[in-house]
Design a protein around this nucleic acid. Structure first.
Lengths: 172, 172
DNA sequence: GATATTTGATATGGTCCATAACAATTATCA
DNA sequence: TGATAATTGTTATGGACCATATCAAATATC
């Protein structure tokens, strides 16, 4: 796996029509991936990196990471939940969720409200700005990001892919 | 996205048949994922984490990470290449590849050999032990890891999935 | 009311990823 | 040929993300 974002030097040793060394240096053309291209984990990781990379490009104007976008989506869909609930359903550990919320709150995208029922917990809600930004984000994702999948795979395959990935995420 | 490995507290507030507080605390049942479950990046990341997690379990006896496995596979398929070539085709940056090779070499799974053509570069090869370990790893992956995909999706879907992921990785 | 649990938070360490810089070696080319 | 540039492996370093332990405040439990 281990695919970084830079990468792809394409290693063109360019068989320059001139000097040869001694024989024994016959390759230097392109590496064979072999069984690697059939490895689930390898291809999954590479695809995930490419998708995140594209997501960040699409969201450059709104400065939202995939993680931040998922938080906004979940808070919008479940207003009034506390940090623990939102974080845990996203698989984020509470300690790591604090700085994330600090960021979103400092940008006035969401707000922590002390619960009156349980004064330990912070109820999370989107601010008006947060709702507006999320709305714009959704449009960007739909038109620039998810649409790209349709262009690449077609509608039916796109849905099949999402379904299979969800199945893996839930049942593997 | 942002799915950690622990996660899944499943937040069972367990509507315990006894005490109720004041009204106004009606929820606490289960959060709605909403559009999140249709987000490519989200489901991709969750699937990837589950797959890596399972990979590590399957490889526990051999102590191979997905990244290490991919290195061994690529070196076996392309013996005689140097560090830069192997690393770059895996998307690993050269500086980060050093410690990785130090590890594999210290376990006698692969070896660095000074090239006689270019005394700057280190040619990579698998040791006998490395070949043996890789052979065992392949079997484990095939029988315990990849086989699980067939059980879950079926042969045809599994191949379709790999194909689509590869397409995303290459053309997205 | 004493004890245990939960919530948000801090501190901290690990892993992975990315950049800059360096010595040794090789390529370039005036 | 010899000066300069480029490449290879390496080290050092910083950032992002992930995980654990711990804490004070508030609440639940008994």
């Amino acid at each position: 796996m281990t695919v970084s974002k830079t990468a792809e030097k394409s290693s063109e040793k360019a068989a320059d029509a001139k000097g040869r060394k001694d024989a024994g240096d016959v390759h230097a053309e392109a590496l064979q991936l072999g069984e690697l291209s059939e490895q689930l984990g390898y291809v999954l990781k590479r695809a995930q990196l490419k998708v995140f990379e594209n997501f960040l490009r699409c969201m450059a104007s709104l400065q939202l990471t995939p993680a931040q976008f998922s938080v906004l989506l979940l808070v919008e869909k479940n207003p009034g939940r506390n940090q623990t609930e939102i974080a845990s359903t996203l698989g984020i550990l509470r300690p790591n969720f604090v700085a994330m919320l600090d960021n979103l709150e400092s940008r006035d995208l969401c707000a922590r409200i002390r619960s009156t029922n349980d004064r330990r917990s912070h109820i999370l809600v989107l601010t008006d700005k947060g709702k507006a930004v999320l709305a714009r984000a959704k449009k960007l994702v739909a038109t620039k990001h998810e649409a790209r999948l349709n262009d690449l795979l077609g509608q039916a395959n796109r849905e099949a892919l999402i379904g299979m990935l969800a199945k893996i995420a839930n049942e593997f």
